[in-house]
Design a protein around this nucleic acid. Structure first.
Lengths: 333, 333
DNA sequence: CGAGTGCGCGTAATCGATTACACGAGCAGG
DNA sequence: CCTGCTCGTGTAATCGATTACGCGCACTCG
């Protein structure tokens, strides 16, 4: 591949001039056309590695995502990628697969690659590497999941309004025995969503006893199914179930179908995360939609603030309740 | 951040020695411990940008994927990422969103970044940049979609056996009027799947007339729904429908439900691509499962062959039919 | 005891760009 | 006509690593 020296020779100028023409940092006159012609003829493209070494800017962002195959994170990654490209950055992606050790591995690799900034939706809460990132001075923005003790802006969705609406929705439909399938303890979002929901339910005089809260070992369908099975075996089974993550809801539906129960007639079902598929299930699922693409965009924007040395705030975007048919007909519909 | 010079000073040796200790290329004796100690104390990590410049190896692979939000490609990307990491490579990802122009953009960026190798599941068939990649000598492997005129190994799934099984399955269940929802013309996989299916159906004396072949403008659910609607309006509507890509099947199901038709009683439904969700729909969908993760692994393996200068062959892995309940009960079940 | 061998290490070139500094030419003002 | 700008360009340092080459020392062997 042609390098800047080849171009300089062909145009009969120095490498400095070529660089200046290409970067437009300082005015260049008559040689300009000759340089551009040489560039065209040789098909020259600047070597980004060399440029990165000299300028200490790689033009790449790192994204460490907790689980790429989870549709919520897929969409988030897609949005981040899109936003990054729009701003002229490439994206180096790492999938932690919900394993903190692998996450640390990735962060290390990304730091070694001297990415300009890092986005992390942390798998665990006690990452030593995250601390190192902060110490290294690499701009960091947390995505979807805050990590206590890490001084970095966090971009995520606020479920309060949506959960408040949901509680009202369920109350209006006469559901009095809600249950929640939560992510394993330690996943910050799970616990938080549970507590919020409990609080807003209380506002309607509806209790959420511990027996109707079931944690899964992971975020997979199988766990959702097991928890749902436990709920249905209770002397007083729930009449409405909220799954705090999307995949778990699938398993929950399987169990309901296997027992011949119907949604929403026998049990109402609500999912946290509105992945496109949920509009196509039978019945279409009422869901709490996080503004996924906006989160991705906001995260990149926030990261760029940090990269450019400006202070950056955490961002909290409201999630909203999308009412479909899995809780029963809306009153007045 | 500390660099190799800092380490050398602290250990009282030259930078060459530090490099040698760290890379183990040539024997180093007594100073070894001092160097390692200095590395530890300073928290030194080699700068990958500088290393890449010098060695002309970045340790990064590029993946340009046609549509990251399509579950098939999500899983493929995940598998590629996993395999790449396992071999010590990072992955720079680009989502073409089925737009050839954006794909070319990405390929260009990746070449500029001097990635060691490139994986592309091409959005279009006439990419000028792909030609340039080959010309540039950057190792290239095509993924899932072959591109005519591009001399690079292609890793994809062979649906012949699965479609043969499917034809037999449908024939055994007495379905005589199959239909196919295909991807827009120009998507190589779509056309190929259609022709294969037509051929194997003929083996059972079943025809696939043009009126029961419907193309969608994109791979989205809405298109699938429109095509299905057209099928159902035919004087002789189909009794079995194959969707050649996963998302289109969702729309097709929507249309069936909207018309009060039942799967499989009224219409059998089969999907190309077995995304995990299909096991959780009602009814669970019979699908043609591509060996997605194996494809990802094979692609990375093939790319590495090319990177290391060995010749590499195309890979064709068999897809298989996963029978669930969307075509009716299996005879003998 | 001297020459040869090999090991361990330092010096310096190199990868391909950016950019500080200097220099020559052209031009304006006094 | 000389001084001093400005403008355009070249020279060379620099980013942080790897690595070819060479040197000195210790050891071995004749």
């Amino acid at each position: 591949m042609a390098n800047i020296k080849d171009v300089a020779e062909r145009a009969g100028v120095s490498v400095a001039t070529v660089s200046r023409v290409l970067n437009g940092n300082s005015p260049v006159a008559e040689t300009r056309e000759r340089v551009l012609a040489a560039v065209r003829e040789l098909g020259y493209r600047p070597n980004n590695v060399a440029r990165a070494l000299r300028t200490a800017r790689t033009g790449a962002l790192g994204l460490v995502i907790s689980d790429l195959t989870n549709p919520f994170f897929t969409e988030l990654a897609d949005a981040v990628e899109d936003a990054a490209r729009g701003l002229g950055y490439s994206l180096v992606i790492g999938n932690a697969g919900e394993r903190p050790a692998q996450q640390d591995d990735y962060i290390r690799t990304l730091l070694d690659r001297r990415i300009d900034g890092l986005l992390v939706s942390s798998a665990g809460t006690g990452s030593a590497m995250l601390r190192e990132v902060v110490a290294s001075g690499t701009p960091l923005v947390l995505l979807d999941r805050a990590v206590p003790g890490i001084d970095a802006p966090c971009v995520r969705a606020d479920g309060r309004a949506a959960l408040t609406d949901l509680a009202a929705h369920l109350a209006a439909l006469g559901r009095r025995r809600p249950a929640v399938i939560v992510a394993p303890a330690g996943t910050p979002t799970g616990d938080e969503r549970l507590e919020l929901f409990r609080t807003v339910l209380a506002g309607h005089g509806i209790a959420l006893p511990g027996e109707r809260v079931g944690a899964t070992p992971d975020l997979q369908p199988s766990g959702g199914r097991r928890v749902m099975s436990g709920f249905l075996d209770l002397p007083e089974p729930p009449d409405a179930v909220l799954a705090t993550d999307n995949l778990m809801a699938l398993g929950a539906m399987d169990e309901l179908r296997a027992r011949g129960l119907r949604v929403p007639d026998d049990v109402a079902l609500v999912v946290y995360d509105d992945v496109p598929w949920f509009a196509h299930t039978d019945p279409p699922l009422t869901a709490i939609a996080q503004p996924t693409r906006e989160l991705g965009r906001a995260a990149v924007r926030t990261l760029l603030e940090r990269i450019e040395g400006r202070p950056a705030e955490s961002v909290l975007l409201p999630a909203r309740l999308v009412i479909r048919r899995s809780c029963g007909e809306r009153p007045g519909t």
